[in-house]
Design a binder for these strands. Structure first.
Lengths: 212, 212
DNA sequence: ATCCGTATCGGTAGAACTACTTAGAATAGG
DNA sequence: CCTATTCTAAGTAGTTCTACCGATACGGAT
């Protein structure tokens, strides 16, 4: 019986690339492809794959939000995260979320198949390129990248609203809190993330998938 | 003699998707694939394709900057722009830049091949999905989307620096102009684009491919 | 029971940005 | 050559954000 695979990625061409890479692989069968989180969740209700290839950046619900839901509801599904190199900082967070594999989008056919087979057999697979980076980081005792700095829910909420072009006053009105509180949160955000102005906060929000 | 094709896209998986879609097409031969602008320009020096599939969003030099250079240096090359739907607002600008085709990344095999053959034969090809949008816009006399609003070079430069988290003062120092001038440019940007704060400007810079 | 983190709110001061105005010099297009 | 655009700069005023300081309240963890 072949490994049942589901793919979720908002870029149809990426789905095509994956499909074509796997179509000659007789031990892997793609049972569903989805271009956003809601579609994916609906598809999972009908049939569960053995392995799920999940893009981190998707419109609406991102892989970051989806993975804990999926691992909770369908603990048998092994998740492999698909990501660009630039988004590779999510890796620790995703591993905490219970994903089994972490694959870069510039992967080749061989690595892809190896990853699917490894996680299907209960193993963990990290893209070799990422392994190298992580190893260096740990050996050199490097500073944890800024992206791992945890934010509280409230902070994330406020960061999101900042990136949505709201002023502090508008955020205060929307959350029914005082302007001063928003300012405090904002200051905390800047200090935690070592960011000095709005521009940096917006880019951080985008990196964290809070908007877009 | 088959149509010689070159692909430029920073996502290897997209290149794979395109390759696989075209590998059975005997009248199309891929002579080169490139993952950034400089690599592409170098490859073009060696051999020129008949048709170039060019991604708009690429690190370093974007398709937006590349297309006028290429059409000028190699006027025989027909360019097809590859883009996500969200970036579809570039279409008019790209057509002004002399590209022959405009294709969305969620295109299917049939459309892709049709587009390549059409532009190879001297025609112009706009993705059917885009045609629909453009038609509606023109029929309903819709407001031109904000993305088409032209910015001067200086304005783009300043928008880029804003998105790079520079303060007005830092921008002034970097460009050897007065703080007040930067403020003026910034105000003009806000008014032109109908954006009220830094957050909006940063997102606009990202949309226009000025950073990232 | 105490402590830590989170969320709330305030004062004060200064830095940064926004809004609207005017205007000269350089440059490009017709 | 003339005109329009772009880039430059500044006045004045107001708003918004930043950077410190401080505080209270609540819930969970030890």
């Amino acid at each position: 019986m072949p490994i049942k695979l589901t793919i979720a990625d908002d870029h149809v061409m990426v789905i095509n690339g994956l499909k074509m890479m796997l179509e000659k692989q007789e031990n892997i069968s793609i049972i569903s492809t989805n271009i956003n989180g809601n579609e994916l969740l609906k598809a999972l209700e009908t049939e569960q794959p053995d392995v799920l290839l999940l893009d981190i950046q998707m419109p609406g619900m991102t892989g970051l939000e989806l993975s804990p839901i999926i691992t909770k509801t369908y603990p048998a599904i092994k998740i492999i995260t698909l990501t660009n190199f630039e988004e590779s900082h999510y890796i620790k967070q995703m591993i905490r979320n219970g994903v089994s594999g972490y694959l870069l989008k510039n992967t080749n056919q061989e690595t892809l198949i190896q990853a699917i087979e490894t996680v299907y057999n209960g193993g963990q697979f990290i893209d070799p390129q990422m392994q190298k980076v992580l190893l260096e980081e740990s050996l050199l005792g490097k500073k944890v990248s800024a992206y791992e700095i945890p934010l509280t829910n409230r902070e994330k909420e406020i960061l999101k609203l900042i990136a949505e072009e709201k002023s502090n006053q508008q955020i205060a009105d929307e959350l029914f809190i005082s302007l001063r509180t928003v300012e405090t949160h904002r200051l905390n955000l800047s200090q935690k993330l070592n960011i000095k102005n709005t521009a940096g906060l917006v880019k951080e929000a985008i990196k964290r998938g809070l908007i877009q």
